[in-house]
Amino acid sequence: MSGATLNEERVSLRTRLAEKGIDGTTLLILPGIIFIFALFVYPFCYGLWLSFQPKVGGALANYEKFFSQPFLYNTIWTTMRLALPVTLINLLISLPIAFRVRLMRNQRLLTTLLILPITLGTVLVAEGMIFYLGPQGWFNRILLTFGLISAPLKLVNNYWGVFISLVITGFPFTFLLILSYVTGIDPSLEQAAATLGANARNRFREVFFPLLLPGLAITFCLAFVQAYSVLPSAVLVGDPANATRVISIAAYQAATEEYDYPMASAIAMIMGVTQLGVVALVLALRSLVYRGPVAAAKG
């Protein structure tokens, strides 16, 4: 008797859970959750805790140190000064190119060529830049030969070196995302706008741009994250002591040169907060505009 009742209850509990969407299949996310907690959430929390355990001073000593030394707090500005314009430039270059490629019948070859720098990696790009853009490099030689400049341009080991390197390594990623957003827009929307009298400029302004805006915001965030954590190029083709002393250099130095893990963690936390601040701002702006389907509305 009692066994049967228990069994019935068990079945009904199972049904009730299944109705809420929890059953054997849902449990498949458990390994993923455990993994994220063990390798992301826990280290993150540990880092946060560690950042309040400075080698010397009170709980906030690391943060006080960071925000009282220009040598440290200036890195935020230095990083922003690189990452923001680079991300914007990459978006602005990618958008018109993606619109061109969209019209091509055979997009694959050009797309492959344009995303080729993904394979280079930051280190090879840096190495190549030292050669190609250096004072003795082909780039300056050609410009000198054609008389476009009178002295070699200084394009490496300064702000512009890191800037160029970030554009080269960031462009493929930005371009790829934007291209897939652009090609995801239903072409009949453009045709409809054209038959209603919209010329190319108006079609872009009234139809494409508002529909692309959410995708552009996402692309901006993802590209910004990459640019913000710039490290190898800031060291190899930048001016790591001054103009391109970005925040990740400060974090690495604390961790690998001073072995001050609490301080390194504190810098990492500051880095995360400032970076997420920009992302949150962009996403908040995004939610102000439309973000529904980009296909034509269907019944």
């Binding site: 929307l189 045709q191 409809a192 054209a194 209603l196 919209a198 508002p210 034509a296 509305a297 269907k298």
Partner: peptide, 19 residues
């Protein structure tokens, strides 16, 4: 060009501007 012809067109999938 289509925008210079001034005809009205109704598309199979309606092509309404979703935004």
């Amino acid at each position: 060009r289509p925008e210079e012809r001034g005809f009205g067109m109704v598309f199979q999938n309606y092509a309404l501007f979703p935004h």
